[in-house]
Write a protein that binds this DNA or RNA. Structure first.
Lengths: 117, 117
DNA sequence: CTTGAATCTCACATCCGTGTCAGATTCTAA
DNA sequence: TTAGAATCTGACACGGATGTGAGATTCAAG
């Protein structure tokens, strides 16, 4: 499929897809004329990238953990694996903080609801 | 206390504290010479602001929900309350997404660990 | 073929909380 | 009173993913 279809099916802009490729996070075959072509597989990849971005990883960080994603094997570099664990722990802590905030927002809502009519 | 101490005690930079004030999120008394002075109360306020920023609210959005924070009463505007609920729901959904990502990172870690020596 | 839609590259803009620097002023302790 | 630290305002810079526009080229359907 071409880039427009991939964009549509993933909900990610064409601009972003090109950016991901530029960052080394997404690959594509090129037609003789230079147009990018993707397989179904890239849909999952793009969606995973979006998840990682949403989790607060930068392009560079994602690049570092990619080997773990692509080939979970003994050959996977220690650096990639360690980075993966670091990011997991960071995300876990982040979620914990957000959960606390969520709880306090809930309290706030209850408090306000009580004081209203 | 002065701005330097507030910064130190909250872990927020002096620059950011001034920015919060500029955005209408933080108030201060001024000395005759123009220096800002804060009470203990502002510590909580700053920490709460940090939580909201971390939860993905923009300055403007925080400004909108502030009335609910400051005076939970019948007088609190409907708009503020509704925005508060919107943000709570947004945060809830966001946490749910992150949790999914966390789970998949955990899987990935387990998978990689298994394949390594 | 031809034509219009899609894609290409390159470059610059945007957002927004924060960093940082400059030059002036204020505060505090000796 | 004076030196040095802290604060003041104002302005510009940054990071990083994404938006946007120009001008050229390619693709696909008639």
């Amino acid at each position: 499929m071409r880039i427009g279809e991939l964009a549509e099916r993933t909900g990610v802009s064409v601009r972003s897809l090109r950016y991901y490729e530029e960052q080394g996070l997404l690959s594509s075959e090129r037609s003789s004329g230079g147009h990018r072509h993707y397989t179904e597989h890239e849909i999952d990849r793009v969606e995973y990238l979006q998840r990682l971005y949403a989790a607060g990883l930068s392009s560079q960080t994602i690049l570092r953990v990619l080997p773990c994603l692509e080939s979970p094997s003994q050959a996977t570099s220690d650096a990639a694996f360690e980075q993966l664990v670091v990011e997991r722990d960071r995300l876990q802590a982040h979620i914990a903080g957000l959960s606390t905030t969520l709880a306090s927002l809930d309290e706030l809502i209850a408090l306000n609801r009580a004081k209203r009519s």
